[in-house]
Computed example of a mutant assay.
Amino acid sequence: MTIVDFLVIIFNVIIYYILYYYFPFSFLHYTSTVSINEVINYVLVDCSVWLTVAFTVDRFVLICCQKLRERYCREKTAAVIITTLCVVSCIKNILLYFAFEPGYIIDNVEWAVDFKPAYFTWPGWITFNWIDIIFNPLLPYFLILLFNALTVRHIVMANRTRIALQGQHNTQNSDDPEMQSRRKSIILLFAISGTFIVLWIPAVVFFLISRITDGHFEPDQYTNPLLIADYTADMFQLLSSCTNTCIYALAQSKFREKLRNAIRSPFIAVIKLIK
């Protein structure tokens, strides 16, 4: 999740939104380069979203499904799920490369991109567009809310049962290791999935409003409310990819330890060479 979110920041924020606008008429503006970068951005965002779903499901199985936990919560299973999500995201979004055409041509050189007119009228592209928004983020929204609700329900019931069996009150169980472990799990779960839900709300609302009202706008109409809403939704959507790394750094001691080791390893290698 952290690697994919970091790649989103590199390709979607730094390259697409910063370098693209500050270096006009560079190779970044070639039609082929922009088309490839658009596809990469869609792939990375889809991977980021569905890895959040996979994390939510993983927490649900770990906490709620005792029998399934031994078979599911393994490194091999995680590798298979991560690979499958990445491959499916690539296959789905590679079709977008054929939805673009050059924005303009100067001296036989194709610059920028626009969606082909058929993208807005051909039933195949319209169907693809709806499948894309269902795939991300409507279905992930539903799955995250569902599994979060089931996980919380299980934790609340398990805590009540544990308190009843021990014959103690909630205030007397503050040092219970099992209760603390469950509390940490639910905090991490809601920190990651909760930020995803909140930060993706503008993108979902904008999509629904633009489709219901059939609103269209030109990319250079900077005072158009729809364009402002579109850029605002993109900003919050990309911000959601920055939060997971911060949450892991703050909440996971093993993640902090690995990060410290990664930072110190080059210096340790240099010191060993000097000695």
Rank of each mutant, 00 (worst) to 15 (best):
Y72T: 07
I186H: 08
W200D: 02
R182G: 12
M1N: 03
I134Q: 09
I105S: 00
V53E: 00
H29Y: 05
P140M: 05
I263G: 01
Y72L: 01
A158F: 06
P225F: 04
Y119T: 01
S265M: 00
M235Q: 05
H154A: 06
L150M: 12
F55W: 03
I144M: 15
T232V: 02
F206L: 06
E75Q: 12
S241W: 01
W111M: 09
V156K: 10
L199W: 06
H216T: 15
F23I: 13
I3W: 08
Y222L: 15
K116L: 04
I18L: 12
S32Y: 11
L139Y: 05
Y17K: 14
T56A: 15
A158L: 06
T232C: 07
P137R: 07
K258C: 01
E75F: 08
F27L: 13
L150G: 02
K275H: 03
M157G: 04
R256F: 00
W200Q: 11
T127A: 15
N224R: 04
H216G: 05
I247L: 09
A54W: 02
I163S: 08
H29L: 03
I263S: 01
M1L: 02
I82C: 06
E38G: 08
V61W: 00
S89V: 02
I18T: 07
M1S: 10
D176L: 07
M235E: 02
F27A: 13
Y30A: 11
Y16N: 08
K116Q: 10
C90N: 03
I268R: 09
L85Y: 00
F60H: 15
A229L: 05
F267K: 04
D176I: 03
F217G: 09
Q168Y: 10
E218A: 15
D214F: 07
I15N: 07
